[in-house]
Design a protein around this nucleic acid. Sequence first.
DNA 1: CTGAAAGCGCTAACAG
DNA 2: CTGTTAGCGCTTTCAG
Lengths: 345, 345
Amino acid sequence: MTTLSEGQAGQSKITARSTMRDVAALAGVGLKTVSRVINDEPNVSAETIARVRSAAERLDYRPDIHAGNLRRSDRKTRTLGLVVGSVANPFSGAVNRGVEDVAASRGTAVFASSLDDDASREATIVGEMLRRRVDGLVLTTVRKNQSYLVPEQRRGTVLVFVDRQPAGIDADSVVTNNAEAAAVATRHLQSYGHRSIAYLGDRAELWTAAERRRGFLSAAEPGLVIENLHDEASAYEAALAALRSDTPPTAFFTSQNLVTIGTLRALRELGLQREIAIVGFDDIPLGDMIEPGITVIAQDPYAIGSLAAERVFARLDGDQSESEAYVVPGTLVIRGSGEIAPRVS
Amino acid sequence: MTTLSEGQAGQSKITARSTMRDVAALAGVGLKTVSRVINDEPNVSAETIARVRSAAERLDYRPDIHAGNLRRSDRKTRTLGLVVGSVANPFSGAVNRGVEDVAASRGTAVFASSLDDDASREATIVGEMLRRRVDGLVLTTVRKNQSYLVPEQRRGTVLVFVDRQPAGIDADSVVTNNAEAAAVATRHLQSYGHRSIAYLGDRAELWTAAERRRGFLSAAEPGLVIENLHDEASAYEAALAALRSDTPPTAFFTSQNLVTIGTLRALRELGLQREIAIVGFDDIPLGDMIEPGITVIAQDPYAIGSLAAERVFARLDGDQSESEAYVVPGTLVIRGSGEIAPRVS
DNA sequence: CTGAAAGCGCTAACAG
DNA sequence: CTGTTAGCGCTTTCAG
């Protein structure tokens, strides 16, 4: 006894989802023939193609990619997972778009998830994506170590790390030249005469924060280093305290977006935005519209995302070369705030 | 003859993906028992549970959600599709995050796709998501008409429209009170004495743009209305031309993010940012840091996204009530640029 | 409490 | 050029 979907019975109103079987029945051909037509395989007569197409259209047939995948030999779901800080922040948004554009050109859809730099959520989120059998994963990680992904990688899931370098696993990564760019920013301030530069940084355990601090320290004479700032408010407080101390810095190097904004607020609060220099790491929306314009090391998150996605597809296409750390250089964008000379005392 | 995955043979190195079968074999139980344990179903002895768990762990077993779905009665993929302008823009990013947070709390993953307001891509993108059998779709549409989705909706795919009202289909929507808020902005300018307010708007066929214009016109005396501005550059040119005309406006109402920024650049170019008033629709990052601060109608994209996702789940949970247009009100944020009185001539 | 058999919608392998 | 049979990894159904 064969069971047919409801669609077969009712002529007028399509309500149940129709299957390949239904299309085959309506077109009066075999199941495999429909499969051939739907997948543009050769060896079907033009007339048969037309009949199948019209039947599929009449039933508003939508092939189920997952049912096919179950049996298909390559087992690709044409799906990518992307794990970022938060889809709501501009940096991640641009990475997301870079990944999406490359993925779309390959007929691949993208799952994005926000981590909020919360290490405890990393494994859960990645697990959810793995259950859905993503072909590859583009990851901004928080955990100290990613060795838990090694078995998955061995099974063929492609892993590419972005923004931060992974540990305990061998895989491609795409990052900004954090240390070098931070040193460039620092030397830029020095070239205007600054000798007392305060470093305001993010949580020390983040790879990016550590790299930027390393770059800063490689160029600067030992000075004020404040870390573990993760939002505007804490940066604002830290900057305010530094400026009110007995030996205030003549310039700031802020290692991250929100830290830069918090520091800008503190400078404004004290009316010092034209007295104290500041260079931030990572660009800020409308950074050229404020007064003075904010000088930054601008990253290229779109390029990071698209390059990462390209690496995923290269690996899926069989690239067996050694894993590589790709560097997307940050660039110094001069707008005014970093070109303020220290007050002569 | 039974075929077993490679995992069974090799003891040390796991390389092939193991299936429920492999776990069952290793644990020495039946397939269904493993299924019960993995899905936390009742009627399994504690000892058996432990044996299965340990076998699953040893094989690093990951259930395949799609294989299960094929046979499962509810056929839910626990996947949502989100179609927005661009995942890289702040408004869409916040909507995305709102959707994601609600979805994550229900064990649901989110596909996001960028449309760039390109009507020709709408059907393709939606089609890709439907092939992947998303349970629901949160959509920012561009096409004039969404009736092509009616059959899909009848089959049980939940549709919720955000930011823009759909046409030709009956479904929940979540939007800002565009017309009312635009009228509020306009009256705000009038309350400072403005009688010659220029409206700079986006493409007239976009529902949001039309609504905002309608709101503006309901409050303003007929004045300068310029439309079809879709980016910073065109808005900049339009504002510049208006300001250089024989009868320049004393205030601007700009109907969208990029248009506001373009207009601000024009005002700065002419050094008029403290002479000519401006109120923008949709908030701008760091809008309080520029001088003067930019007065806007701020929307709440996070609330829009999370409410939309909640509606999807409500419908999936069986809510059969009439479809509704939910309104997330925009709020006037006063920062300076909208509180400039016209020059007395 | 446990498991064998059937089948979800599709593709692979083969036979006509 | 076309169709039949088996089976992907899981859940359902039903019999122990």
